[in-house]
Design a protein around this nucleic acid. Structure first.
Lengths: 137, 137
DNA sequence: CACATAAATGCACTTCCGTTGCACTATAAA
DNA sequence: TTTATAGTGCAACGGAAGTGCATTTATGTG
């Protein structure tokens, strides 16, 4: 619990109760979570507060915003030493259409994409949709 | 115009007026379009009709559904001989955060992603976000 | 300690998009 | 012509993201 505060302070984010709770949950879950997930979990807290907490986390490079094709924004903790650089820090995500979970594949870095002249990339997302190992018969 | 009907009939879709219009627009645009885009363009037509037209197109492999990270579903025509197979038919998409357009890079096929044992893929999306050549200074 | 300021939180509300149910219309088959 | 089927239009719902404003909590200063 102590080190959770450290994580926030290192990113210049004040360790409020809400932030610590969200951070803790993100850390214990290896799947990406949505705003609604958090809302259902922290029933005493307001949606807006959680919403803004996540926004702060993304802005201060504590968490990633993940696009998994469901249309619902998910969030997951950045890896250690992540600076959200597109060449080095981005990995593949997998969305299971059965259990509806979205998980990170940190080992699978996103390969380099050569764009035509004039195009400039600042983010890349690669999502695989299918059936995860647990849901696979 | 004649061949538009052919395209639909080849996919077992009856060539109604609405479908021909949507197909024509998708063909002339090299960018992916959203339901709202079409709605704004065909102001005399109902949203639901266009929605279902797109749904039919996707089901019958006339168009792709595209995830570009904006949270808004976009659509683009399948390439010739596309069967929406993940190994061969899927390509990279680029979303420009300035002009808000999403375009296809049919030349950039999505590289093969090796998943852990037990995982089964049925779709892959790779989207690059940034600034397109037209919006780049 | 008292006060002033700023940050964080909670509540209400809005907007946007996707989706569905139902009635109506046009088209194709008998 | 009648009947069935497919397509279209209208209305409405629900989920999710986002905003404005009031209230509470934390922080700093005299």
């Amino acid at each position: 619990m102590q080190d959770l505060e450290k994580i926030l302070e290192n990113k210049n984010v004040k360790p409020t109760a809400m932030r610590l709770l969200v951070l803790q949950l993100l850390r214990n879950k290896n799947a990406a979570v949505s705003l609604t997930d958090l809302e259902d979990h922290f029933i005493k807290s307001d949606r807006t507060t959680i919403y803004r907490t996540l926004k702060t986390f993304v802005k201060n490079e504590i968490a990633h915003k993940i696009v998994d094709g469901t249309g619902i924004t998910k969030y997951a903790l950045c890896e250690e030493n992540c600076h959200c650089e597109i060449e080095t820090d981005l990995h593949v995500h997998f969305h299971c259409k059965i259990c509806n979970e979205t998980i990170c594949f940190p080992k699978n870095k996103i390969p380099y994409i050569k764009l035509p002249d004039g195009y400039e990339a600042d983010n890349v997302s690669l999502t695989v949709t299918g059936i995860c190992d647990k849901c696979n018969t």
